[in-house]
Design a protein around this nucleic acid. Structure first.
Length: 960
RNA sequence: GCCGGAGUGGCGGAAUGGCAGACGCGCUGGAUUCAAAAUCCAGUGAUCGCAAGAUCGUGUGGGUUCAAGUCCCACCUCCGGUACCA
């Protein structure tokens, strides 16, 4: 019996596509550039759990778009690959001793099987994995490009390191001085950074991988320790990364997220001269010279005057109100500024602050704490001495690590000043409608807005913006300050102490005794890739030292140009491979370059990029940064990698009903509603408020919420949650395909709602789209016949006008909705089509054929099978499969109706409907509307004050 | 706290300022069946009414408009992100 049987149809057509290479992409889009489409998915990390139903959501969307544009005659590049370096494979290796490569390959195979099972039209010949040596060879090569680049701030571009101008005094210092000068300008450099060391994971993490002082992965505690790390100077590209966003067709929210993450602010740097407090007899415990030296090594461009403490502020206009200063506990000048009598207290405070995790610092009330250093500084405009405090509400890593505190106009400073009884001087007059205006002026409240300057000498009366400019200018004239721009973005901590990552292509020079000379160099490109060594033991040793240190000497030591070198043993973070994979798909087997320049110019940029919003800042910012470096160095033509971006929404688990017992205005207990093996209900009293699962059939609507049918005192809350193993609400795509078929899974995920919305799963909904496919099948196939053959209602005669209207309106709606990625409404329209035509006793073949073509990007397997039946392809082998059919066009003339129904409103309420010709003129429409008996009776005895006729839509009569 | 996004039937959702609830799920009734499944047909926002129909209805309160789910103002709730960035 030829019933619709996806289990039989789907593997057969998948094999056919593979055999016929239906979706192979040409090397070059050999037609004009406007007709190429690069449609990209965020490639998955191949986890041991296999595909999650969230993956096929974005993948189906791009697959529909790819198939749609192919059918419209464009040349489409639609590839897939695997982001296969990553922690879980290494953790598995540590647990089992099995090499990560083996498990990774197994997972890739499983993912590939699952992706093929869903019928995606990827060009599998272009598949890549970031763990392939031939792939990471080029990841290493790009690192060498970054290492070989410095950022020319004057021109705003990255340039080769040998074009870096060397100041004469550096040249005078000899080769080593020149080398370290260059190193300090490279986009990839080593630095002693305060890093997030996670003892449980045995690695250092990026700021982005730490959430509330715990690791994003595994939720382990994270400590801050200083360690020599590789950094990428992404901050040099901050401005370019902001500017580049303008031309991108990305969701406004994501652009804003990136802008805020980069966090550009403009203001001024101000130098405060430091004086000792004459009331204390202490001398400083460190020297300014030492401090200046330490700042120089961390890349400061200009140095403050000898005895100056430099701050950054966005509000230089409030300088007259700066009544004290604060430096971060980690500020290098803390010792130098601390007087002997304050030493013990300051050291105690600093130690406490360093032991606090980020979580503790930000937890709870966040009450401001701090200690006085004993030193004073001179406010450069008032000339008054103001105290310098140490407090952990000032961050060492932003600005200069020190601030001028203006308690009258900054809420944090205000809070601190109140706590420690520091003076508060208002210098900006709040507008008259500001509630606490008088309290602000009296120094008893805080105002952060802008206004007219007061208590500011010659600046009094000027508006904030003007004062900012004038004070900055005055400070610059006196050499005490200058306009400055700051970014929240920090340089990218790029090394990891892991085994399962790309080794750095860097060699450290050793002297005759085997000690590092401090000189390093890149591995010559012809010696790439630097492969991972064979390790017998993957276990971390609990020290912040990379596992590759355990490698054999053969791997570890390299003789090059007569000198012995030790390899860098850190590995790159998982982001590295995903930073440029979109380029490799264009030319995946090229062994001379990352990508052929001609092909890159022809295919880039990516026209549509679909993936989860969790990558809004990290992956998408890192990728853009690498792309811009490659662009500056002439390796790619496109300035930006991803022209259009769409974030698919998260898929939640099925809606759960949860019951609570509520009494006397509070929760008294939770009620467990469960069933035993025999299906009998078990009730038990709990003590806490443990969530209680309730069957939805036991729930009754009452008022605003739900109650349990059997016991209305039990309130029921309905809500969908994130899918998680612990909640047991994870949906497995394999199981869905087994029960309903891949086409149903694809169609359901697109039918759930808008692509970008968060939406809960519903297995009944999958059944719904499956029954649509069943109906579509029975519309065309005679499922009662013995053989696979056409339904007897299929006829060769043309459509009647009504059928033609349905057909062409459907073509139009599906075309427009597919273009705008409104897949849910396109599917709804195809359902209407099917409902209409299954009621027709004769179904013209032309309508059926075009419908199947429309369906094919959405449900490609059943479409191929129905196309096969409709076109008798078994007898006429010249007919190509439906995936290669041209997309149908609609005929406007078929959409024209002889009469249309028009609602007639009286005073804005619909009171009747009239049928009339679409060409009727306004007076005609009005006349017909007033003749309608119901309308006429309402008009009796009234006058029409106004009448609105919207041709083709409605009539509204305003009467009195 | 701040920044995004969203609040529409029992549920997922649809609606260029122009008939609110397309399409699907669920539910109710009917046909078919020995029976069930499957399928097909009809109904399904609420209230009132035998009916024709009437009134109310898109988180809350105001406003603009002939006309508001849609635009404006204020507020509430939920979800996501972020966290002392001077």
């Amino acid at each position: 019996m030829p019933r619709y049987n996806p289990a039989e149809i789907e593997p057969r057509w998948q094999a056919y596509w593979q055999q016929q290479a239906t979706f192979a992409t040409p090397e070059m889009p050999n037609i004009d550039r406007g007709r190429k489409r690069y449609i990209l998915d965020m490639f998955p990390y191949p986890s041991g759990e296999g595909l999650h139903v969230g993956h096929p959501e974005g993948y189906t969307a791009t697959d529909i778009v790819a198939r749609f544009w192919r059918m419209r005659g464009d040349t489409v590049l639609h590839p897939m690959g695997f982001d296969s370096f990553g922690l879980p494979a290494e953790e598995h290796a540590i647990r089992t001793g099995e090499h990560p490569r083996i498990q990774t390959q197994r997972n890739i195979d499983n993912f590939t099987r699952q992706l093929k099972m869903l019928g995606f039209s990827y060009d599998w010949n272009r598949a890549i994995a970031t763990t392939d040596e031939e792939y990471f060879r080029w990841t290493q090569w790009i690192f060498l490009v970054i290492y070989d680049t410095w950022f020319d701030t004057e021109r705003g571009v990255g340039r080769p390191i040998d074009e870096l101008p060397i100041p004469p005094e550096v040249v005078a210092g000899g080769d080593n001085a020149v080398a370290s000068y260059r190193d300090s300008h490279r986009l990839a450099y080593q630095d002693d950074a305060l890093v997030n060391w996670c003892p449980a994971l045995g690695t250092v993490l990026a700021n982005e991988e730490v959430i509330d002082g715990r690791s994003e992965r595994g939720n382990h505690p994270v400590q801050r320790i200083p360690l020599r790390q590789w950094m990428l100077r992404i901050t040099a590209y901050a401005e370019r990364l902001i500017d580049g966003l303008d031309d991108l067709d990305w969701p406004a929210g994501i652009k804003k997220l990136q802008r805020d993450w980069i966090g550009r602010s403009s203001g001024a740097e101000v130098d405060f001269h430091v004086v000792r407090d004459p009331s204390t007899d202490g001398d400083p415990m460190g020297s300014f010279a030492e401090w200046r030296a330490s700042r120089a090594s961390s890349g400061f461009v200009t140095e403050p005057a000898d005895d100056a403490l430099r701050v950054y502020t966005t509000r230089p206009d409030t300088l007259f109100g700066a009544t004290y200063m604060v430096i971060a506990p980690e500020h290098p000048l803390v010792d130098a500024l601390t007087t002997r009598d304050r030493a013990e207290e300051v050291r105690g405070y600093r130690d406490r602050a360093s032991f606090k995790s980020d979580r503790e610092r930000t937890e709870g009330e966040r009450a401001k704490t701090g200690v006085f250093t004993g030193s004073m500084a001179t406010n450069p405009v008032t000339g008054k001495a103001i105290p310098i405090w140490v407090a952990d509400y000032v961050l060492a890593t932003y600005g200069t690590g020190a601030i001028m505190a203006v308690p009258a106009h900054d809420e944090r400073d205000f809070e601190f000043a109140v706590t420690y009884d520091l003076p508060i001087v208002a210098v900006v007059e709040p507008p008259s409608d500001f509630e606490k205006r008088d309290q602000v002026i009296a120094g008893r409240a805080c105002f952060v807005g802008t206004g007219r300057a007061i208590n500011s000498d010659s600046f009094n009366g000027q508006m904030t913006e003007q004062v900012k400019a004038s004070i900055t200018q005055q400070l610059a004239d006196q050499g005490l300050g200058r306009a400055a721009i700051n970014y929240k973005l920090r340089d990218w901590l790029f090394s990891r102490q892991r085994f399962w990552g790309e080794p750095f292509p860097i060699l450290h020079e050793l002297d005759a005794d085997g000690n590092p000379t401090g000189q390093k160099r890149g591995v010559p490109p012809d010696q790439l890739p630097v492969r991972l060594p064979d390790l017998a033991d993957f276990k971390p040793h609990g020290r912040p030292e990379p596992p590759l240190e355990k490698a054999d000497d053969d791997w570890l030591f390299v003789r090059l140009d007569g000198k012995l070198h030790k390899r860098e043993t850190n590995t790159m973070p998982q982001w590295a491979g995903s930073c440029w994979y979109y380029l490799r798909y264009i030319d995946p087997r090229n062994d001379r370059a990352i990508v052929d320049p001609e092909k890159e110019a022809a295919w880039m940029p990516v026209d549509l990029y679909v993936g989860g919003a969790e990558h809004a800042v990290l992956h998408l910012l890192y990728s853009r940064f690498w792309h811009k470096v490659l662009h500056d160095r002439g390796h790619v033509q496109s300035p930006e990698p991803f022209k259009r971006l769409i974030n698919q929404g998260m898929i939640l688990g099925e809606v759960e009903f949860t019951g609570y017992q509520y009494s006397d205005g509070r929760w008294i207990s939770s009620i467990y509603v469960r069933r035993d093996d025999q299906g009998n209900r078990i009730d038990e009293q709990g003590t806490g408020l443990t969530p209680v699962k309730v069957e939805d059939t036991e729930v009754d609507k009452q008022g605003d919420g739900f109650v349990l049918k059997s016991d209305p005192s039990i309130r029921v809350d309905s809500r969908a949650h994130k899918m998680s193993k612990s909640r047991g609400n994870v949906v497995n795509p394999d199981a869905v395909v087994r029960e309903y078929g891949a086409d149903s899974l694809r169609l359901y995920e697109m039918f759930m709602g808008p692509l970008e919305a968060t939406k809960p799963w519903s297995m009944a909904g999958v059944g719904g789209v499956r029954s649509f496919l069943d109906r579509a099948w029975r519309m065309i196939v005679d499922d009662r016949a013995e053989q696979l053959c056409l339904h007897p209602a299929i006829v060769d005669s043309p459509c009647d006008p009504e059928q033609a209207r349905m057909l062409h309106a459907t073509i139009r709606k599906v075309t427009e909705d597919t273009e705008s990625l409104s897949f849910n409404t396109a599917i709804a329209r195809m359902m209407e089509f099917t409902n209409f035509y299954t009621r027709c006793e004769s179904r013209p073949r032309e309508a059926m054929e075009r419908f199947v073509v429309l369906l094919s990007p959405y449900a490609p397997h059943i479409a191929e099978e129905l196309w096969f039946v409709l076109t008798s392809r078994d007898t006429d082998t010249s007919i190509p499969c439906v995936s290669l059919q041209p997309w149908p066009a609609w005929d406007e003339s078929a959409l024209v109706q002889s009469t249309i129904e028009m609602p007639v409103q009286v005073n804005g309420k619909v009171r009747g409907k009239v049928n009339l010709s679409p060409e009727a003129s306004e007076p005609e429409i009005l006349a017909i509307a007033c003749q309608d008996p119901r309308i006429a009776s309402l008009l009796e005895g009234k006058t029409i004050v106004k009448s609105i006729v919207v041709p083709g839509r409605l009539v509204n009569l305003v009467i009195r």
